[in-house]
Simulated scan of single mutants.
Amino acid sequence: MSEPAADPEEVRHVASLARVDLDDEEADRFAEQFADILAYFETLDEVPEVESEPDLTNVMRADEVRESLSQAEALENADSEDGFFKGPKVS
Score class of each variant (00 low, 15 high):
Ala35Asn: 04
Arg19Cys: 11
Glu10Asp: 11
Ser80Thr: 01
Val50Ala: 12
Asp23Ile: 03
Ser52Phe: 12
Thr57Ser: 08
Gly83Leu: 10
Glu51Asp: 09
Val65Arg: 14
Asp45Thr: 02
Gln71Thr: 08
Leu56His: 05
His13Arg: 14
Ser16Glu: 11
Glu76Asp: 05
Gln33Met: 12
Val11Leu: 05
Thr43Gln: 06
Gly83Arg: 06
Arg61Pro: 10
Glu49Trp: 05
Asp24Met: 09
Leu44Pro: 00
Glu46His: 08
Asp7Gln: 04
Val50His: 06
Glu3Phe: 02
Asp36His: 05
Val47Arg: 04
Ala31Ser: 05
Phe34His: 13
Leu38Met: 13
Val50Pro: 00
Gln71Tyr: 03
Val65Gly: 13
Phe41Glu: 07
Arg61Cys: 14
Val59Trp: 06
Asn58Asp: 10
Asp28Met: 10
Val47Lys: 04
Glu42Trp: 00
Glu46Ile: 02
Leu44His: 08
Pro88Phe: 08
Leu22His: 01
Gly87Tyr: 07
Lys86Ile: 06
Ser68Lys: 07
Phe30Val: 14
Glu64Ser: 09
Tyr40Asn: 08
Glu64Gly: 04
Thr43Glu: 08
Glu25Ile: 09
Pro54Ser: 05
Ala35Trp: 03
Ala15Thr: 04
Gly83Val: 03
Pro88Ile: 10
Ala35Pro: 00
Val47Phe: 09
Glu64Phe: 11
Leu22Lys: 01
Ser68Glu: 11
Ala5Ile: 08
Phe85Leu: 06
Leu17Lys: 01
Phe30His: 02
Phe85Arg: 02
Glu25Lys: 12
Leu22Glu: 00
Pro4His: 00
Asp82Val: 02
Leu22Asn: 00
Asn77Met: 14
Asp36Gly: 06
Ala35Glu: 11
Ala27Trp: 00
Glu49Asn: 05
Val47Asp: 03
Arg61Gly: 15
Ala15Arg: 02
Phe85Asn: 01
Glu81Thr: 12
Thr43Val: 08
Tyr40Val: 13
Asp63Thr: 15
Phe30Tyr: 07
Arg66Glu: 07
Asp79Val: 07
Asp79Lys: 13
Val59Phe: 05
Arg61Met: 13
Gln33Asn: 03
Glu53Trp: 11
